[in-house]
Structure formats: structure tokens, C-alpha cells
């Protein structure tokens, strides 16, 4: 891809591993992972623009795969080629895999203990705050009176209140974008 090849490489394989390992340690499912990736790739290392980050996220919701799996492949490939995808995927899944297998090995001992009530008053609400903070940062360009704000609000309502399929909402958003963003702001950089 010529666009990415011209970009200077600012992330080593080692950085890539730790970024995705950290993401794989996040609570809150896919969005918890997304919050870490935003923090590391967009804010800290600045190797992905906010616009590209959101575009890749949008595409990852449309392909028939776990969104974070697809995103790990996308960013891994962009930052480190084929080996980048292996490193990103492996680093991201190792924490969950190791903990899952360990907890399953001790099934007989643990099946009657219940960790969930403790997590419910500690890590889970705290993770929600990280997720919300990341969502606000990602939405920076949208929070002003504009056609974009209406479109984002419409997508929010369609999924939250009318339970529309997210992939279809994204496609509809793209098509509406063609109609709404006729001015120069819609041009790709």
C-alpha cells in the first residue's frame, strides 16, 4: 500500500506486541480493547489518525469476524506487515487465553466460588469510565452542531433504541455521507 509505505515506521515489533498485550488485558470486552488501542495508537504513538482509526473500526464491524480480531489484523498489517498481524493477534489473545485455561483447569475447585460480585463493584465500572473517555476523544470532531452530529445521533438511536443491525447502520451512514458531505470537509486526505 503506497500510502502507508511512505509513512515512517514509529512502532517496533516489540512496541506492537506490548500495545496489543495491554489491549488484551483490558476489561469491558471489545470496547475496553478499543479504548486502549485509541490511547496507544492515536494519542501516544500517533501512528494512526483519529479519522483512520474510526474508518477501520467501521470496516471491522462490517466484516464477519470479531471486531477486535479484525482490528488487530488491520493495525498489525499496517504497522508491521504479515508478521505484524501475527504479533498483534497473539499479544491480544494471550492474556484472555491464559486466564481462561487456568480457570477451566481449576473448574472442580472454583465452580462454587463467585468472583463476579467483586468485579461488579470494582474493575467493571472503572473500565466503563475508560471506555467513555475513549469514546469522547474519538467523537471530538462530531460534537458540534453539524450534519455529522445528527448522523452520529441517528446511528446511536438506531442501534440503542430501535435495535437495528450495526453493520447495516454503518452502511446506511456511509451512503448518507455521500449525500450530506458534499463540501470539501468530506474529501479524503
Amino acid at each position: 500500500m503506497p500510502q502507508t509505505a511512505s509513512r515512517p515506521m514509529k512502532v517496533s515489533y516489540q512496541d506492537l506486541f506490548w500495545i496489543f498485550f495491554k489491549a488484551g488485558m483490558a476489561f469491558g470486552g471489545g470496547l475496553g480493547i478499543l479504548a486502549v488501542l485509541e490511547e496507544e495508537l492515536v494519542t501516544r504513538f500517533k501512528v494512526v489518525s483519529r479519522e483512520d482509526f474510526l474508518t477501520y473500526y467501521g470496516i471491522s464491524r462490517i466484516v464477519p469476524s470479531g471486531s477486535m480480531t479484525a482490528l488487530a489484523v488491520a493495525f498489525g498489517y499496517r504497522l508491521g506487515g504479515f508478521w505484524g498481524t501475527i504479533i498483534a493477534l497473539t499479544a491480544m489473545v494471550v492474556p484472555a487465553f491464559a486466564i481462561t485455561v487456568l480457570l477451566t483447569m481449576f473448574y472442580q475447585v472454583l465452580k462454587n466460588t463467585n468472583l463476579l460480585p467483586w468485579l461488579e463493584v470494582s474493575v467493571l465500572p472503572a473500565a466503563l469510565a475508560l471506555i467513555l473517555a475513549a469514546a469522547i476523544k474519538l467523537g471530538k470532531d462530531v460534537f458540534r452542531p453539524s450534519a455529522g452530529f445528527l448522523l452520529a445521533a441517528g446511528a446511536f438511536a438506531a442501534v440503542s433504541f430501535f435495535k437495528w443491525n450495526p453493520a447495516l447502520v454503518l452502511l446506511a451512514g456511509g451512503l448518507l455521507g455521500i449525500i450530506l458531505f458534499r463540501s470539501s470537509q468530506g474529501e479524503a486526505k
Binding site: G58, L138, G139, L151, V159, L175, G177, E187
Partner: peptide, 17 residues
């Protein structure tokens, strides 16, 4: 570019959802 802009804006809505 315009389709992508619509997609990113809708993505923000989805993330909030």
C-alpha cells in the same frame, strides 16, 4: 471519501451505543 466520512461519523454513534 464522503462514504468514509459518513462511516466514521456513524462509527462514533455506534461506539456510544
Amino acid at each position: 471519501g464522503r462514504f468514509t466520512r459518513g462511516l466514521t461519523v456513524a462509527s462514533v454513534g455506534l461506539i456510544f451505543a
